[in-house]
Amino acid sequence: MKLFKSNKSAGLMASPYIAWALIFIVIPLCMVIYYGITSADGNLTIENIATIFKPGFFKALKRSVFLALISTFVCFILSYPLGMILSSMKLKKNAYIVTLFILPMWMNFLLRTLTWMTLLEKKGVINTIFEFMHLPTISIINTQGAIVLGMVYNFLPFMILPIYNSLNRIDENVINAARDLGADSLQTFWRITLPLSMPGILSGITMVFIPALTTFAISSMLGGSKILLIGNVIEQEFTQLYDWHLGSGLSIVLMIFIFINMIIENLADKGGVNK
């Protein structure tokens, strides 16, 4: 290209960011890995990572994966029909109605979570209404159910947006072509619509699963102090127990999960689904 007099001047222009990325992205990650695989006296060890298999830690991890999976699944089940309805409305780009469904995303994340504290508390809004109607009160606050509810509420827009976009991008004539070739509406859905929206589904799953798996704020606000997720455990290691080595080791475990998720996504994406 002729925008630059030489490769050198382009390199010069990119150098501030290259330096930035090295200092603030690469080196910090290396530090996490370094702390994760060393002990306090500086010797190499896998003990920090292996701690994840100790009962309390493993339980927190299992719980995190379980709740994140449920939340992701619920988000998907809610979002897919919504995406189909919205895309069938043939809206213009940037339509108000679509924005309406992702608007809460712009509200502060903690305030969104806080709303559910207020609603679910023993003497909270929902129970007050139930009492008023002489219905039995519920106690969801400080349960795993409340955490899932908080995750779904917070991350739902992250699922809606990519699914809606991918469904909206499908050429109407592709659907017509399937019908034209003899497929009924159910066959058309399974063989055409669903596979073609797979990129959106996958990115929605990632965008919900990763933050749900690694959150500590939602669980500490809606799950009380008893239900710990892996995020809470890591947070405590850094802010209360000051065991950076163990905290980093557990972070490496999280990164392994993220990496696996990426690989699965890439494989599924290559498995016959193109953009």
């Binding site: 004539n173 592709v174 072509a177 019908r179 953009k275």
Partner: peptide, 21 residues
């Protein structure tokens, strides 16, 4: 009659091929 029950087939504008197949 819905399109899948008609004894005719269509070649669409811009082809409308199934890109995932």
């Amino acid at each position: 009659l819905s399109p899948n029950k008609r004894q005719l087939n269509t070649v669409f504008q811009k082809y409308a091929l199934f890109t995932h197949m």
